[in-house]
Each structure stands twice: as C-alpha cells, then as structure tokens.
Design a binder for these strands. Sequence first.
DNA 1: TCACTGATCGTCT
DNA 2: GACGATCAGTGAG
Length: 196
Amino acid sequence: MRRLRRSELPESTVELARFLIGTILVHDANDGRTSARIVETEAYVPGDASSHAYRGMTARNRTMFLRRGHAYVYFIYGTSYCLNVTSERAGTGAAVLVRAGEPLEGGVIMQRRRACERPRDLARGPGRLAAALGIDIRCDGLDLCAAGPLWLARAESPARDIGESPRIGITRETTRLLRFYERRNPYVSGPAALRA
DNA sequence: TCACTGATCGTCT
DNA sequence: GACGATCAGTGAG
C-alpha cells in the first residue's frame, strides 16, 4: 500500500467525497493494524446549514478548519465517534464524513473492539467504522497525509459505480445530493434502497 | 429486512 | 436545558 500525498487529494469537498470512495483507511494502533476500504461518504460543504462549521469555529470543531487531509473526529449521541477528512483551504471549515467501509486487515481486532461477529456489520455506519478501527477523540486533528498512525492509502480497486443520495440523519439541507456510495456494495450503511 | 425506540453525554443556547 | 452527521435491541412482515 502506498500513502496518499496531500497533493493527490482534491481540494473541493464534493470531489474529495467521491475520490475517497475506494481508497483505504489504515490505523496502526498499539494492538495492531486495522484497515478498511471506504465505500460511503458524505460531504459537508462551505455554507452548509447542516455542517458543524456553519456557525463558525468553536472548541469542538476547530480541527475541521485545518487544511485538507486532516482528521476531524467528534463524539455524538453519547455513544459514538465519527471520522471526517477535512477539505478545502485552511480556515474554511469543511469536511467529508466517512460513513462505512469494507474491512481488510485486522478482522479479529475489529471483531473484538466491536463485539461483533459478522464482517458485514463491523464498519457499516460511521460510529461502527470508527469503533472498528479504534478511532476516538485522541485521533482528532491528526494529519492523514503525514507519517502518523492514521492514514489513507491509494485505492487498489477503484470504485466502479458511485451513487448519490441525500445525507443520512440530518435535519437541514435534507434534499442536497451530498452522500456518495459504491452501488450494490453490501458494506454500505442504511436500508437496501440507499445502497442500490 | 425494515421501522421504531430508548440510551447517553458533550456542546452550545 | 435541548439537541444531535448514531447504535443496539425489539417486534412485525
């Protein structure tokens, strides 16, 4: 696997959201390496009323304003962490939510972290994916394009057919087609209709 | 397989 | 004090 360089990442949030489908997310943690092929993302673009950055920078979302290729991790609903890849220029406040992945390396580690047997459900959903890869608030702000423990690798099997839909779980800007996924991939989250 | 519900807590109002 | 970029469990079809 080869690490992706920042220059290879599109600056545009929507282009980055599409680009990330098929790329590989790797976490080298104390208990070993886990990795997953990204199959579903959502774009949180500049000026987006459903984006955490909409009302400006706060203590919680400050890493979302880093230049593209950094991790923005937050804790939600008292239960789950979600991982984003920052986008646009430094200071903008935009990112791509990584919603689901197909487990590659470290299956046993992921099963232990998630207390889950079925490979299909290990990283199907943003909270599940973060849990499977051992991603929590300590990963917030990490540079995914540096020589660190959390990084992106070039797609070995690029996505063939990418679908679009409204984003999941939001209450504003609900009609914009900013969710992207590899069609007919069983590791994509949501009901069957959102995976077709 | 899908729809619905309660859990749970950090953040911002 | 309300509200989330969610999840696991439950029950019906």
